[in-house]
């Protein structure tokens, strides 16, 4: 899988390049600002572009805007946004154009190479990867006792969180150490309780769940 990296901190950029090479990815370019990344992607589209939010020149939200530009210009390229902080509103903005090929993770996640590599793979193959912190914040908005979310069992909540993170049923079943069939049953039950209609195998179920959580 071909990856482009855009990160202004040389330390982190070099570290990640090493890390990704270790995990078997081909790092086609590693640049330090958004303009260079956009140019590089246009010239030589990777499978996934990984970029930081704070980038030169202003170190504010250049990376986020570049991510949205990439989504518009190169829908076939997966975009994984990394940041020191994760924000629900950024996630909402990133997911507005759909959940295909988009990821938004805390930089800390690079410390678990297997997980991180899996997230890149998902984004590169048209799936999504949403940081557990964002999912947790979205879920905690539904804390009132009369919220339909309170009717979910503990296990169903676990499944819901992992689903929102963009994981497949197989990944969820491995993570929770349960059978894939059981995960499917949980999904059906969750969709029933929340009154959602997207089919449990549909790729769009992530979108349905996130829309529900963000409503």
């Amino acid at each position: 899988m071909r990856v482009a990296i855009c990160e202004d901190s040389a330390l982190f950029r070099e570290g990640m390049t090493r890390l990704l090479a270790e995990a078997g990815y081909q790092v086609v370019t590693a640049v330090d600002d958004a303009e260079k990344l956009l140019a590089s992607v246009a010239a030589n589209p990777p499978d996934v572009a990984i970029l930081d939010i704070r980038l030169p020149p202003t170190h504010t939200d250049e990376g986020l805007r570049a991510a949205l530009t990439l989504r518009r210009r190169h829908p076939e390229v997966g975009v994984l946004v990394l940041s020191q902080y994760v924000r629900v509103s950024y996630a909402v903005e990133l997911l507005e154009g759909g959940v295909e090929g988009i990821g938004y993770l805390l930089k800390d996640r690079v410390s678990d190479l297997a997980e991180f590599a899996a997230a890149i793979r998902r984004v590169g193959s048209g799936g999504s990867a949403l940081d557990p912190v964002v999912v947790e914040r979205l879920v905690s908005r539904h804390s009132q006792p009369d919220d339909p979310l309170s009717r979910l069992t503990g296990r169903e909540r676990d499944v819901l969180r992992l689903m929102a993170e963009g994981r497949t049923n197989l990944a969820i079943s491995e993570r929770l150490a349960i059978a894939e069939r059981t995960v499917e049953k949980h999904c059906t039950s969750i969709f029933g309780k929340l009154g959602l209609t997207a089919g449990p195998h549909d790729h769009r179920r992530v979108l349905a769940v996130l829309r529900y959580l963000n409503a």
């Binding site: 704070r54 504010t60 939200d61 629900v88 509103s89 909402v92």
Partner: peptide, 14 residues
């Protein structure tokens, strides 16, 4: 820092 007041308020709202 990243998004100015409008973005920050949107985050609080979110």
């Amino acid at each position: 820092t990243e998004r100015g007041l409008p973005g920050a308020v949107k985050e609080l709202a979110a």
